[in-house]
Design a protein around this nucleic acid. Sequence first.
DNA 1: CCTACATATGAATAATCGTGCAAGTATTGT
DNA 2: ACAATACTTGCACGATTATTCATATGTAGG
Lengths: 110, 110
Amino acid sequence: MESVRNALPAQDVVEDLAQIFGLLADPGRLRLISALLEGGEMCVCDLAAATGHSMSAASHALRLLRVHNVVKVRRSGRQAYYRLADSHVRMLFDLAITHIGHDGRDRGDE
Amino acid sequence: MESVRNALPAQDVVEDLAQIFGLLADPGRLRLISALLEGGEMCVCDLAAATGHSMSAASHALRLLRVHNVVKVRRSGRQAYYRLADSHVRMLFDLAITHIGHDGRDRGDE
DNA sequence: CCTACATATGAATAATCGTGCAAGTATTGT
DNA sequence: ACAATACTTGCACGATTATTCATATGTAGG
């Protein structure tokens, strides 16, 4: 199984991957993201209202997403308008929903 | 933004999604998964060796993946052979790598 | 039956993560 | 200049999570 070990992605690639998935591993951020998938571009207070976050929580969450290039901001006056940065997230999102849909009742163990 | 709120996925869908992404949000489990993507079917001790886990850590991790239908086991004698349960994971994996590849150095904020 | 081996599991500890609160910055309106 | 609005940020705290150690289960061989 030497060969397999050598074929593994580099340490830092794996860590980046984990980080991306980690960003999507929270229901709150996921609601934020799906609101943006729906709404296109929204300001923080509307996002907070739509997703049930406090402003603070929404801002914290958006910052994380922003730092990791999942969303982008456009600032205008005193509001900040957020949008998704690219389409990968939508694909990940949809793919994961498909996985759930599978409802893989597969019995067998545990 | 009423309309957006109503278009959000149901609470439990979002939670399931978060859980799936959560499973992929750990470098250790990701190494396990990519070893399986490479190796096809492997026993726990080879997986542990290939990914740098202790046997115990590998077993814990595999159990998580197993419970959530990401991997399946086949037991033969005293070993347990694990394989990926379906192809969604591979797609999520590849899609996320594409996202990284983007290397979206996009400056702007933070 | 007894020992060795492969894996699984539980409990405990340590690290990480999300949220609220309070204070800070920037922008608009009076 | 002052107050109000929209958002951001640091900190502290509770909750979740990963890892290790010790023990358990199950199988194979002597």
